[in-house]
C-alpha cells in the first residue's frame, strides 16, 4: 500500500503505539463484562492496530510478520462462540446458557470467571478476522 522509504521515526513509534493499542484492546476485552468494552470493541481495536501497521509497513512485510489466516480466525471464532452454547446443552441447559463463579487466584486475588468470556472470545476472534478479511481482500487484490 502506502510505503515511503524515509520515515524512520514514524516506523519506530508506530510499533510502540501498536503495542499500546493492542494491550488496551485486550484490557477492553476482559473488562467487557463489568465495564464498557467486550468482544466487539476489543476486536475492532485490535484490528485497527494491525491495520495501522499494515498502512505503515506495507502488506509484504506485515504478511511475513503476522502470518495469520484471517478467514480461519473467523471460523475459529464462530466455532468457539457456538461451542460454548453446545457445552451448556450437554449439561441439560438451554443453548447458550452462561455460567459464572468467583475464584481466588494468586497475584490477581478474587477473579470472576464466566463462560460468557469464552463466548466473547469467539466474538473477538470473529470480529478481528472479518475486519481484516474485508480490508485485506481489497488490498491484496492484484487485478
Amino acid at each position: 500500500m502506502i510505503n515511503q522509504p524515509n520515515d524512520m521515526m514514524f516506523r519506530v513509534f508506530i510499533r510502540l503505539i501498536a503495542i499500546i493499542v493492542v494491550t488496551f484492546s485486550i484490557y477492553l476485552f476482559f473488562s467487557g463484562h463489568n465495564a464498557p468494552g467486550g468482544g466487539f470493541i476489543g476486536g475492532l481495536m485490535t484490528a485497527i492496530a494491525i491495520l495501522v501497521m499494515y498502512l505503515v509497513f506495507g502488506t509484504k512485510t506485515m504478511n511475513a510478520a503476522l502470518p495469520f489466516n484471517y478467514p480461519y480466525m473467523m471460523s475459529i471464532g464462530l466455532l468457539v462462540a457456538a461451542g460454548t452454547g453446545i457445552i451448556s446443552v450437554a449439561f441439560g441447559y438451554p443453548y447458550l446458557k452462561q455460567f459464572f463463579d468467583y475464584f481466588q487466584i494468586p497475584i490477581f486475588g478474587e477473579v470472576e470467571l464466566t463462560t460468557a468470556l469464552i463466548f466473547d472470545l469467539g466474538v473477538y476472534l470473529l470480529v478481528v478476522g472479518s475486519a481484516m478479511t474485508f480490508i485485506l481482500s481489497i488490498v491484496e487484490d492484484d487485478s
Binding site: 467487557g32 463489568n34 467486550g38 468482544g39 452462561q98 459464572f100 460468557a116
Partner: peptide
C-alpha cells in the same frame, strides 16, 4: 449473569 455492564450482559448472556 455476574456482570455489571448490562449492555454486554444482554449481548453475551
Amino acid at each position: 449473569a455476574g456482570g455489571y455492564n448490562m449492555v454486554n450482559v444482554v449481548l453475551v448472556d
